[in-house]
């Protein structure tokens, strides 16, 4: 559950970062079109919203919300470090995280 939330949160934050000119350029060496940027932004917020339920399921609302915020902190810290030192790896980790997200939950 916790890892699922973390994975989805990472993918979401990555999408949000890629929606910004500065980080899109960091990864792709060009600016995103307005459309791409908007789509990435929506996808990012959607993923962030989706990362909440696993945390709440694991911990309940009272602990789940602060836990989710903590997971966002961890995911974002990883993203910031990766973006600045290995932008391509930051990008590749996104889909990997998304694909892996269901497994921790399914495996229990």
């Amino acid at each position: 559950m916790i890892l699922s939330s973390l994975c989805i949160a990472y993918a979401g934050l990555l999408a949000l970062a890629l929606a910004m000119d500065r980080h899109h350029e960091q990864v792709f060496a060009r600016r995103p079109s307005a459309r791409t940027s908007r789509l990435l932004g929506w996808a990012g917020w959607l993923a962030l919203a989706l990362s909440l339920p696993p945390a709440v399921m694991a911990w309940g609302w009272a602990i789940g919300i602060p836990a989710w915020l903590g997971l966002l902190t961890v995911a974002a810290a990883a993203l910031v470090l990766l973006l600045s030192h290995a932008p391509r790896a930051a990008l590749r980790l996104g889909p990997v995280a998304l694909v892996c997200a269901p497994f921790p939950t399914l495996l229990g």
């Binding site: 916790i2 911990w59 602990i63 602060p66 836990a67 903590g70 997971l71 902190t73 961890v74």
Partner: peptide, 14 residues
């Protein structure tokens, strides 16, 4: 005081 190990680590990182 309520926190299990996972939650405790999140607090620690924060």
């Amino acid at each position: 005081r309520f926190a299990g190990p996972g939650m405790r680590w999140l607090f620690f990182v924060s």
